[in-house]
Amino acid sequence: MDPLAAEIIEAHGGLERWRQLRSISAHLTQAGALWEIKGRAGVLADTRVTVSLTEQWASHAPFGDPSRRSEYTPGRVALVSSEGQELETLEGPRASFDGHTLETPWTDLQLAYFAGLAMWTYLNVPYVLALPGVRSAEIAPWMEEGSTWRRLQIRFPDHITTHSSDQTLYVDATGLIRRHDYDVEIAGGTPGAHYLSGYRHRGGLAFATSRRIYPRQHDGTPQRDMLVVSIDLDHLELS
């Protein structure tokens, strides 16, 4: 593992503690332009998200209708009733995004796939840096608004489903992640700059409870006049 990767993991609580847990859940509120663009405004504006720390699985409850929840895995997504009955399913969901651009509307099941993989990624970073097949290397530092952040370039293997194979973490002097760059492949490769703040400690781990995502421009700077997604988390529970 790259030394910076090890520092980042330790700053967020360490692998030993993370490996003692099986899941994280939190109250989630979301806003931003993306949901309107995709024709799904309000569906996941106020919900509870749960992600697994042992496999690629996530769920949002409620999912729009109070009686529905989503279940995400890379190979299958489903909408499930409060009684546990599957209402809709989609096998091989990533293929359904072929040819999509940022402006292409989503179905509910496509939203469930995107939201599931996104929140699984966000709540499992940085510990995924220690998973088999994940490669990382420190690259040149970055200056932004008077701060200098160290940067870690990541390459994810094919068996880990996330926004894009290549991603970059920006960390402050304490090792906490302040920015996370990726390209949203299922939305035409749209480049994003994802900012993290509001760190809180739960169960020995540090979590960013406020996240703001903007378009990333060709020079690497964010387009601050367009908030693509806002994410706020509270009432975190670990199990």
Rank of each mutant, 00 (worst) to 15 (best):
M1V: 12
D2F: 06
L4N: 02
I8S: 01
G13P: 00
L15K: 05
W18H: 05
S23T: 09
A26V: 06
H27T: 13
H27I: 14
Q30S: 05
A33N: 01
L34T: 06
E36R: 12
I37N: 00
K38D: 01
G39N: 08
V43Y: 00
L44C: 14
D46C: 09
V51R: 07
V51M: 09
E55H: 12
Q56H: 06
W57G: 01
P62S: 12
F63L: 06
G64H: 04
P66Q: 11
S67H: 09
R68M: 12
S70T: 14
P74K: 11
V77N: 03
L79E: 02
S81Q: 13
S81V: 10
E83A: 13
E86L: 10
E88A: 13
T89I: 10
R94F: 07
F97H: 08
D98V: 12
D98L: 14
L102T: 09
L102V: 13
T104A: 10
T104P: 05
P105Q: 08
P105M: 04
L111C: 06
L111H: 05
A112S: 07
Y113C: 10
F114R: 07
G116M: 11
M119W: 04
M119G: 05
W120I: 04
T121M: 04
L123A: 07
V125H: 03
Y127H: 11
V128Y: 04
V128L: 13
V128R: 03
L129H: 00
A130W: 04
L131P: 02
P132K: 05
P132L: 08
R135W: 08
A137I: 08
E145F: 10
G146Q: 09
R150D: 01
I154R: 00
R155M: 06
F156I: 00
D158F: 13
D158V: 11
H159A: 12
T161S: 07
S165F: 11
D166S: 07
D166Q: 11
Q167R: 06
Q167D: 01
Y170D: 07
Y170Q: 09
Y170L: 15
V171S: 01
V171E: 03
L176P: 01
R178N: 08
D181E: 03
V184C: 02
I186E: 00
A187V: 03
G189Q: 11
G189E: 04
T190V: 14
G192P: 02
H201L: 14
G203T: 13
G203M: 09
L205H: 07
F207V: 02
A208L: 05
A208R: 01
T209K: 06
R211T: 03
Y214D: 13
P215L: 15
Q217L: 15
Q217A: 15
D219N: 15
G220N: 08
Q223M: 14
V228C: 01
V228I: 13
V228S: 02
S230I: 03
L233T: 06
L233Q: 13
